[in-house]
Amino acid sequence: MTTTASSESTVSARALSRSYGSNRAVREVSLELKRGEVLGLLGPNGAGKTTTMQMLTGNLAPSGGEVDICGIDLIERPTQAKSRIGYLPEVPPLYRELKVDEYLRLAGRLHKVKASALTEAVQRARNRCGLSDMGGRLIGSLSKGYQQRVGIAQAIIHEPDVIILDEPTVGLDPNQIREIRTLIKDLGRDHSLILSTHILPEVEAVCDRVQILHRGEVVFNDTIAGLKAFRGGQTLQLGLRNPPSPEDIGRVAGGASVDALNANLFRVHPRAGTDPTDNLVRASVERGWGLFQLQPAQASLEEVFVQLTHREEEVSA
């Protein structure tokens, strides 16, 4: 494997589009990935994550745009480009009637792992995915969590430069989710990794960068720090035992808009660039509001979407 300056960028997709009839599932999505980077593709169901991933792995031909994998054009030279990719689709492609070892050997052979290195590659992939004792088990008899691991093992058996995982933690229990996340972080050290999910904390836990898709378009593209800044400090949750009217609170908070969540709980949306925490505490003490809770509320994924799509509309208006 040559490491020239151009192969530093492992995935480069430019203006990918895909239509199903008149429905444009993905519009002009571009993404860049460097070696050792973990990119999170985030979005609600139907945002175009899976379609984008299918195009990146050559399962689906794009209606427009280009994909380069380690500098190899995926559309012009599919077989060379595909040998650099490991892909775990939404539903792991498992042959239930095979044993774990048989299946992994098949995956290795399909990805052109040399016959002499095959046994070792199977062993390594199994150990990495916590399947050390499962080699002789029938895939159909494994639990969902283990099947998911076999799916990941299948994607990494040929030591690909790029690993693409479509919703790898869906349907797993919390312990399994934690284990898979640890595995993903581990893999992210020496491979490029793209991961799709609709769970925001998951992205914050494992990714370096995040792109948010909404209705087939990229609406957010930043580092995790950028996402955290965007989410946090946006709103304040305020709890008062003797609350005044929401308008009063808004006036004290420098013209913020205030939603009453119930009789005692309020959500304060400060004006951009202002931090009314200090004023609210002082006013509460002076006027006897009975402050019992004041915390920055992190925006949930839905709120991030609302804000992002809202902002888009403002820009386009």
Binding site: K82, Y87, L94, H111
Partner: peptide, 14 residues
């Protein structure tokens, strides 16, 4: 139907 076709299509096989 079993979604295993993806494995063949993603592999470097024509």
């Amino acid at each position: 139907r079993n979604k295993t076709m993806t494995m063949l299509l993603s592999a470097p096989v024509s």
